[in-house]
Design a protein around this nucleic acid. Structure first.
Length: 361
DNA sequence: AAATCGAACAACCGCATGCGC
DNA sequence: GGCGCATGCGGTTGTTCGATT
């Protein structure tokens, strides 16, 4: 019962787009729109490309009003705030940053922001990837695209301020954490040239998070097929006194019969409300209170650090694995810990592949 | 100058979900 | 309600290029 391929792979070109392909696609969509059918689009234009590929190229590169590179401090803060709070819902985060794509933000986070926020840190995985990449290159001696759309030097005007190195890979905090910063007065995240919604103040962010808490969705509802559903009626335990999004009481919330709720993607985390901290506001809220002064990342690192250092139980924030030693992150130790303590009621089993929501029975 | 490393980012892949039939 | 297709999303891979050795 294999899934039908979305296109005839044999007759479809892959790899970097040529300028000719770009202009074909761009001019067609500008004149006729997508026609609501990406699959049929490449045939109409005469492109030997998969519809998905066309869609991606349009959304991530050709679409008007896209910004590339040069993330501002303010954008950094928004990304960090939302990431820490909702995890890797890049489309949701992108919806708050006009002109940015989820792919862009994801890449930016993975390559720069993570390090900027947390301090440069090299994981075993990184190491492994670098090695395997090197191996791959050695094996096949690389390929050559006819054209690279990477417009090279993306004006990397980002000053990468190195942050204190609080956490080692194999151990929990190796340096004492600084005291938490005093709360800063709220400042608006007013955006210019908005295409989509933005959160202009703390209240907007709160609303966004409430939405996300009910069902992680793109709140730009015109473009998403994951339409928002009112979250707070049944089953959702929403508590802004905690730092993490709510979890669900499965029966009442979703209409699918999966045994555990998969919020988004195969490795997305669902963090329950058994918070590590008794701070009174979410990290996102605290970030949102910051202005764009230079304390933001120190504050961010500090706040995340607090969460981690207080985290003496097997919860984790998706994508922040490098905070934790492997003895904590590993399935084996986690399961052992649960077995030892019998503390299974509040913690979901931590599986690397399928980190699913804890369901309260 | 050549080799190697690593950052950056474009693109692909598989899965989940929405939607129409 | 079930099925199949299209789309959206997030993780991952591949490629390029500048920096470093």
């Amino acid at each position: 019962m294999g899934r039908a391929p979305c296109c005839d792979k044999a007759n479809v070109k892959k790899g970097p787009w040529s300028p000719e392909e770009d202009s074909k696609l761009k001019s067609y969509i500008e004149q006729h729109g997508t026609g609501g059918n990406w699959i049929a689009l490449p045939q109409k234009i005469g492109l030997k490309r998969c519809g998905k590929s066309c869609r991606l190229r349009w959304l991530n590169y050709l679409r008007p009003n896209l910004k590339h590179g040069g993330f501002s401090e303010e954008e950094d803060n928004i990304i960090c705030s939302l990431y820490v709070t909702i995890g890797s819902r890049w489309s949701v985060i992108a919806a708050q940053l006009p002109g940015r794509t989820d792919n862009d933000i994801k890449n930016y986070w993975n390559t720069k922001l993570k390090k900027k926020l947390l301090g440069k840190h090299r994981t075993n995985k990184d190491h492994h990837q670098a090695r395997s990449r090197k191996q791959a290159i050695a094996n096949n001696n690389g390929g050559s695209g006819d054209y690279s759309s990477s417009s090279s030097s993306t004006t990397a005007t980002h000053h990468q301020q190195q942050q204190p190195y609080y956490w080692s890979h194999m151990h929990m905090p190796v340096l004492p954490l600084p005291p938490p910063p005093p709360p800063l007065p709220p400042l608006p995240y007013a955006k210019e040239n908005n295409q989509g919604p933005s959160f202009n103040d703390q209240d907007s962010l709160r609303k966004l998070l409430i939405k996300l808490g009910g069902k992680f969705s793109n709140n730009n509802n015109s473009s998403s097929d994951h339409d928002y559903q009112p979250p707070l009626e049944d089953g959702v335990i929403m508590n802004f006194d905690h730092q993490f999004p709510p979890y669900y009481e499965e029966e009442q919330i979703h209409h699918h019969h999966h045994h555990h709720h998969h919020i988004a993607g195969s490795s997305s985390s669902c963090m329950n409300n058994n918070s590590a901290s008794n701070n009174s506001s979410s990290v996102a809220e605290q970030f949102s209170q910051n202005d764009n002064n230079n304390n933001n990342f120190n504050a961010a690192a500090t706040r995340v650090g607090e969460m981690v250092s207080a985290n003496n139980y097997p919860e984790r924030l998706d994508g922040l694995e490098f905070f934790y030693g492997e003895e904590i992150m590993g399935v084996t130790t986690t399961d052992e810990k649960i077995l030892e303590t019998g503390a299974t009621s509040n913690y979901p089993p931590l599986l690397d592949e399928d980190f699913s929501c804890h369901v309260q029975q």
